[in-house]
Structures are given as structure tokens and as C-alpha cells.
């Protein structure tokens, strides 16, 4: 595991985001093992996956839905711009939240509702369901950053990984018929770098502190 320390993480995640992201109580996450339900498996070959050196997180309150992260992701990794292929997904729940249209839509997440935007991101699971499910063993651990990456030579485009991933992150590129997923841009994280409101972060595993309150002091008083 990397022993690099994260620089002070200027996040304004609230408790709900945090728990949602980790899928467990905050107490259990100090080591950030990212062992998530849905990514567990009893198969023997899980051991080949070391923990990735870091993961992406998304702060909902800062996200404004510009989708530049999706543009950057596909621009850098695919030489094209596409929402469908993007491995960071704000677009899917942009208007009405991740559950789509509900009766009282104005009360639910999304730009047409209470304005809250969520992102689906690859967790670089310690026991990645995508890789474990792949019949071609096409998903491997990239040595530099530890991202779970798809070998385009081996992938046959069957779509099993997409169905296996609890968040549907891998997508088959309809133009190449090869699956693709977040590779952490081999250490660069274009989405993090472009986000104009700093809503995305690359958090190194081993980092001690998460969920600071740097920006949460009480706001100034207004005319009552």
C-alpha cells in the first residue's frame, strides 16, 4: 500500500455522501480498504488484486452538472467525447437523480428536483466484480496506479463486466466492441483536473483524514 499522505483534502462531503460512497460506517473506513458489498467474492483468484493506490470521490454539494469530467474522461482516454462511455457519470442522473423520474420529482435529486447531483465512479474494488466475472480474464491490475484495467486484446465485448459491476461502470464502446472502464488515467485523473468546482478528488489510499470541514463555518448573517 502506498505510504504517501494525501495533502489536506478540502472536501465538503456530508455524512450522507460519505456513507454512500463507502457503503459502510465511517468508523470502519479509516483504512480505506474499499471492500464493498457487491464486490466481494469467494473465488480464489481475488488475491491477485492489491488495493489500488487511490480512488476517485465526488462531492455532491459542489457538483454543478457541467459534465466537463465526462468530456475530459473520453477525450483523454478515447480521443472522442461521449457521455455514454465516460467512466465518471453525472449525466445519467443529471435531470431526475439516479432513480429516474419519480412521482414528486421536485422533491428528489437532480437538476429538475432538489438540484443535488450524484456521480457514479469506479471504486477500483479490492475484489472487483467486473474482473471476477470476466470470462476472458481480460481485466487486470495495472501495476503503476493499481487501477483495474481492461486488456483490449483479450476483451470480446460480451458485456459481462458491465452487468457484474454493481454500478454499471464498464461500458462496451459501440464503435470498437471493446469494454472500457476507469483506469485512473494511469495516474493523471483528467476528470479531477478539469472539474471547475473541485467536486472530484483523487484520494490516495493510506491517507488519514477524510471529510474535513474547511468550508463549513457558519455563513454570514443576512437581514432578517
Amino acid at each position: 500500500m502506498s505510504d504517501e499522505r494525501n495533502t489536506v483534502l478540502d472536501t465538503s462531503m456530508n455524512r450522507r455522501d460519505f456513507l454512500k460512497l463507502t457503503g459502510m460506517s465511517a468508523v470502519g473506513v479509516s483504512a480505506l480498504s474499499w471492500l464493498l458489498p457487491g464486490c466481494t467474492s469467494n473465488k480464489e483468484d481475488v488475491a491477485v488484486f492489491e488495493t489500488a493506490s487511490g480512488v476517485l470521490i465526488h462531492e455532491s454539494p459542489r457538483c454543478t452538472g457541467c459534465l466537463l469530467c465526462e468530456n475530459a474522461c473520453t477525450g483523454v482516454n478515447d480521443g472522442k467525447s461521449s457521455q455514454y462511455l465516460a467512466r465518471v457519470k453525472v449525466s445519467s442522473g443529471l435531470a431526475y437523480g439516479s432513480n429516474g423520474v419519480r412521482g414528486e420529482w421536485w422533491k428528489t435529486d437532480g437538476a429538475m428536483g432538489n438540484f443535488r447531483l450524484d456521480a457514479e465512479l469506479c471504486r477500483q474494488c479490492e475484489q472487483p466484480a467486473c474482473a471476477l466475472a470476466c470470462p476472458e480474464n481480460a481485466i487486470f491490475e495495472e501495476p503503476k496506479v493499481g487501477a483495474r484495467e481492461i486488456d483490449p486484446e483479450k476483451c470480446v465485448g460480451c458485456g459481462t463486466c458491465e452487468r457484474a459491476c454493481p454500478w454499471g461502470i464498464p461500458k462496451i464502446d459501440p464503435e470498437t466492441n471493446v469494454a472500457t472502464k476507469c483506469v485512473l488515467c494511469h495516474g493523471y485523473s483528467a476528470c479531477v483536473s478539469i472539474c471547475p468546482t473541485g467536486a472530484l478528488h483523487y484520494v490516495r489510499v493510506g491517507m488519514k483524514r477524510l471529510g474535513s470541514t474547511g468550508n463549513t463555518s457558519s455563513p454570514k448573517k443576512y437581514n432578517q
Binding site: S12, N14, P61, R62, S193, P196, T197, P219
Partner: peptide, 26 residues
């Protein structure tokens, strides 16, 4: 001291210098 006050938690725009491209949106 200028905030998106109804954000949960409130978010301060703060001073945004031209170099801080991750704050352009504020």
C-alpha cells in the same frame, strides 16, 4: 464569506484567483 448557503454543507465561493482553475465555477 460569500456562500452557496443552502448547499449541504454550505459552500464558500471564497476568493478565486485566475490560477485556481478548479474554482472557475465559483
Amino acid at each position: 464569506d460569500l456562500y452557496w448557503e443552502k448547499a449541504d454543507p454550505p459552500i464558500e465561493t471564497g476568493i478565486c484567483t485566475p490560477e485556481q482553475t478548479n474554482k472557475v465555477g465559483y
